[in-house]
Design a protein around this nucleic acid. Structure first.
Length: 434
DNA sequence: TCTGGGGTCCTAGGACCC
DNA sequence: TCTGGGGTCCTAGGACCC
C-alpha cells in the first residue's frame, strides 16, 4: 500500500455543507432570530432542523415538537419554507460556480466541487480557493458552511463533517489520511449503514482506518462493488466523479402518510390512500410527468410492509385513470381486520407528459387547441366507445369491498384507452413483507 | 431513534430466447 | 421431448442516503 505523495493533489475535491441550513436561512432572512433557539418543521409536528442555539439546549432533529417545547419553552418554532431554502441553495451553488463549473448539487444544503487544476487559474492554493468560497457564502448569504477538502468525495465529505459549524478541514495525502481515518468510526463513512457496520464490526473493525488497512480484495469479497469503491475512495483514490449533470426528474414519485392512530377500517384507509394519490399526481403534473406504473404499499400496525405494483397500459397523470388501478391494488392488498398505520403510493415509470390527457382533463381549455382536443376526444370515443372513461370511474366507485383477484368486471374492464392485449394490466405481484 | 417522508443504486434470480 | 449453455431483460428487495 502506497499512499500518495503528501505534496501532490491528484484530485482536489471540495465538499461544502450548510450548517443547520434551514434554520440558518431563517435567521438570515429574519435577523431578529439570530442567537435564539429556532427549529423548523411546525407543519409536521416533528423537528426538521434545529439551529445551533437549539441544539445546545438538547433539541435535535426528529424530536416531537410538543416534547421540544416542554424541554425548551422559549423555542421559536417555524414552518418549513422550502421556496426560500431553495433560493438560498441556488445562491450557494452559484457562488461555488464562480470558481468552477464542476459543481455537483448533491442535496439542497450540500455540494461537491472539483477544484483540480485551479491553482494556476486563481494563483492560489486549493485551501485558499476553498476558504474563499466559504467566506463568500458567509458574506453574501449570511449563512455558514463547513468545508472539507481532500482527494476524493468520500474523504471530503468526512472532512466537512469533522468540524462544524463553520469548519474547515483539509486532508491531503499520505499520513494525514491514515491519521484522520483512525478517528472516524465506521458508521460515519458515507455508504456504511447499520448493516454494513454490523458486518464489519463482526470482523473486528472499528474505524475507517481499520477498513482501508485490509486488502482491497477482502473489501470487495465482503461488501461487493461498493466495498471496493469505498476502499479506494478512503485511500484517496477519486473513484466517484463530481457530477455536474442536472438530476433528471426522478423516476418515481411517492407519497406516504402515517395515520395518527392505526386503523383497520378499509374506507378510512382507502380515503387516506386517495389523498396520497392525489398529491402524488399533483406533483407529477407540476413536473410535467405521467406515470406508467403505480404501486401501493400498506404498513401494518407492527410495521411490516406489503405492497403491490402494476404497470399501466399507458402513461397518465389523471386521477380518474389511476384511481381505479390503485383501487384494484388496494383491494388485493388490504386484509380485512388487520390494522394499518400508513399508506403509500408510488408513481413509477414516469415519462414526460405528452400533454394530451393533461390538457384534455385538467387544464382550462385553450382556444387555439380546442380543435385538436375535440378531434382527440372524437378519436378516443370512436375507437373505444363512449364508456371508456365512465367504466373506469364506475369501477372505482362501484366495487367497494370486492377483494377477489379474478373479479370479472375489473379484470375485463379496459381501464385505459389505448391498451392492447399485451399491455393489459398485469396481475399484481406481491412485494415480500419485510 | 422504538419507526417521518422521499429518494437512489446494486444485485440475484427468474423469464425468455437462441 | 429432454438437456445444456449462454445472453439479455426485468423485477424484487436490500441497503443506503438526505
Amino acid at each position: 500500500m502506497s499512499f500518495l505523495n503528501p505534496q501532490s493533489w491528484p484530485r482536489a475535491i471540495l465538499h461544502f455543507d450548510g450548517d443547520a441550513f434551514f434554520t440558518s436561512v431563517e435567521q438570515a432572512v429574519h435577523p431578529t432570530l439570530k442567537g435564539r433557539p429556532v427549529v423548523t418543521g411546525k407543519e409536521r409536528g416533528i423537528i426538521a432542523c434545529a439551529s445551533y442555539e437549539a441544539k445546545a439546549l438538547g433539541i435535535s432533529r426528529g424530536l416531537a415538537l410538543h416534547e421540544a417545547r416542554r424541554q425548551c419553552p422559549q423555542l421559536v418554532v417555524l414552518p418549513s419554507d422550502y421556496e426560500t431554502y431553495s433560493l438560498y441553495s441556488k445562491r450557494m451553488f452559484h457562488i461555488a460556480r464562480r470558481y468552477t463549473p464542476m459543481v455537483e448539487e448533491y442535496s439542497i444544503d450540500e455540494g461537491f466541487a472539483d477544484l483540480t487544476g485551479l491553482r494556476r487559474v486563481f494563483h492560489a492554493s486549493y485551501e485558499e480557493i476553498a476558504r474563499r468560497i466559504q467566506s463568500e457564502i458567509q458574506a453574501e448569504l449570511d449563512i455558514t458552511v463547513s468545508i472539507g477538502l481532500s482527494l476524493s468525495k468520500s474523504l471530503a465529505k468526512l472532512a466537512s463533517k469533522y468540524r462544524k459549524p463553520k469548519g474547515f478541514t483539509a486532508i491531503q495525502g499520505g499520513a494525514a489520511i491514515g491519521e484522520f481515518l483512525r478517528q472516524i468510526p465506521l458508521e460515519k463513512v458515507w455508504g456504511f449503514g447499520p448493516n454494513t457496520v454490523g458486518l464489519l464490526t463482526k470482523h473486528g473493525l472499528a474505524t475507517a482506518a481499520d477498513f482501508i488497512g485490509r486488502p482491497e480484495a477482502w473489501a470487495e469479497r465482503l461488501l461487493g462493488k461498493v466495498g471496493r469503491e469505498l476502499w479506494g475512495e478512503l485511500r484517496g483514490e477519486s473513484l466517484y466523479p463530481v457530477s455536474t449533470e442536472e438530476k433528471p426528474p426522478s423516476c418515481t414519485i411517492s407519497k406516504c402518510k402515517t395515520f395518527t392512530a392505526v386503523s383497520s377500517d378499509p374506507e378510512f384507509i382507502w380515503a387516506k390512500l386517495v389523498r396520497n394519490v392525489e398529491s402524488a399526481l399533483i406533483k407529477a403534473r407540476r413536473h410535467h410527468l405521467m406515470a406508467g406504473g403505480a404501486a401501493v404499499m400498506l404498513r401494518r400496525a407492527d410495521y411490516r410492509q406489503s405492497g403491490l405494483e402494476t404497470r399501466l397500459s399507458r402513461a397518465t397523470s389523471a386521477s380518474h385513470e389511476i384511481l381505479p388501478v390503485v383501487r384494484l391494488l388496494f383491494q388485493e392488498l388490504m386484509e380485512t381486520g388487520a390494522a394499518y398505520r400508513s399508506t403509500m403510493v408510488i408513481l413509477c415509470r414516469l415519462v414526460p407528459e405528452t400533454s394530451l390527457q393533461y390538457e384534455l382533463f385538467e387544464d382550462p381549455v385553450r382556444a387555439h387547441r380546442l380543435e385538436t382536443l375535440n378531434l382527440a376526444v372524437d378519436a378516443i370515443n370512436s375507437r373505444y366507445g363512449k364508456h371508456t372513461l365512465s367504466l373506469a370511474t364506475g369501477l372505482f366507485l362501484g366495487h367497494h369491498g370486492k377483494t377477489d383477484r379474478d373479479d370479472q368486471p375489473i379484470r375485463k374492464t379496459r381501464l385505459l384507452p389505448g391498451e392492447t392485449a399485451r399491455q393489459r394490466l398485469k396481475t399484481p405481484r406481491l412485494f415480500l413483507p419485510v
